[in-house]
Write a protein that binds this DNA or RNA. Structure first.
Length: 259
DNA sequence: ATGGTTGCCTTGCAA
């Protein structure tokens, strides 16, 4: 079972690349973030023609998440506990071949003094509540997506410069630790110890060619799925620019394979 | 160096 998370930064702008990537890599499950379209405008036919079931929770202009799967997607759930009617579209879950898949787009946070940062922390607390009240840590479960948090020093290009900043703040690390403390494991770290394996590079300041990135796109799994984990790779190639091609997302896909 | 670039869709916000 090949499961992927990819923040595409607009599915309409990225459609050509997303379709080509799917044809080349043929994942079983693809979790998308920042689709930036309402459900009616999601180009589902393109993916259905490739053999995928499609479940979305879209939103105009911002956010939006989706799960594409070769097998049917059961028990689909959208949103978090205490979401209001105006909730941001940031979480969609479904069960595929007996594995609970939770696709998340964690709020960015902007900067630590912003209301966006408080919103991020509240959102993470409600994600923890979802796990503890509606999920089973002893069952096969994968929580994956754009977490907008780099777990440790190996996951940021300049840890000293990033210390205390949004995406690498102690309070964010504490929130992430509560999720993993519930019973989740960083699948990438089962297979790779090295520093400098990033999944996101800012569009600005030539961050990608200078390799100034962060690993903020994570695949977290319960013990049952960690034991089935056979590999986890970041597809850095997809972040590259090529002449005559449409632009890449600022995030690379993260590919995890399970038995 | 609080800059820079991209995507939304139109004028400024979010990332």
């Amino acid at each position: 079972m090949k499961v992927v998370t990819w923040n595409v930064n607009s599915i309409r702008t990225r459609l050509e690349r997303a379709e080509a990537w799917l044809r080349a890599h043929e994942p079983d499950v693809l979790c998308l973030q920042e689709i930036k379209v309402v459900d009616e405008d999601f180009p589902r036919g393109v993916f259905e023609d490739l053999g995928y079931h499609v479940e979305t929770w879209g939103q105009k202009t911002y956010n939006g998440v989706a799960i594409l799967s070769r097998s049917p997607i059961e028990d689909v759930h959208r949103g978090l506990p205490h979401d209001g009617d105006d909730a941001q579209a940031r979480l969609i879950a479904g069960t595929v071949d007996g594995v609970r898949i939770i696709c998340v787009y964690v709020p960015n946070g902007k900067n630590v003094t912003s209301w966006h940062f408080a919103y991020k922390l509240d959102w993470l607390a409600r994600l923890e509540e979802l796990l503890t009240t509606a999920c089973d840590k002893d069952q096969p479960l994968i929580l994956l997506g754009d977490f907008n948090i780099a777990p440790d020093d190996r996951d940021v290009y300049d840890p000293d410069a990033w210390a205390g900043r949004v995406h690498f703040h102690p309070v964010e690390h504490a929130a992430l630790a509560r999720l993993t403390g519930w019973g989740l494991h960083d699948v990438f770290r089962k297979h790779h110890e090295q520093a400098g394996a990033y999944s996101w590079w800012d569009y600005r300041g030539a961050a990608f060619p200078r390799d100034r990135g962060l690993r903020i796109d994570l695949v977290l799994a319960t013990r049952a799925m960690l034991e089935r984990s056979k590999g986890c790779e970041i597809d850095r190639e997809e972040r590259k620019e090529a002449k005559g091609q449409s632009k890449p997302s600022d995030h690379a896909p993260v590919v995890a394979t399970f038995s």
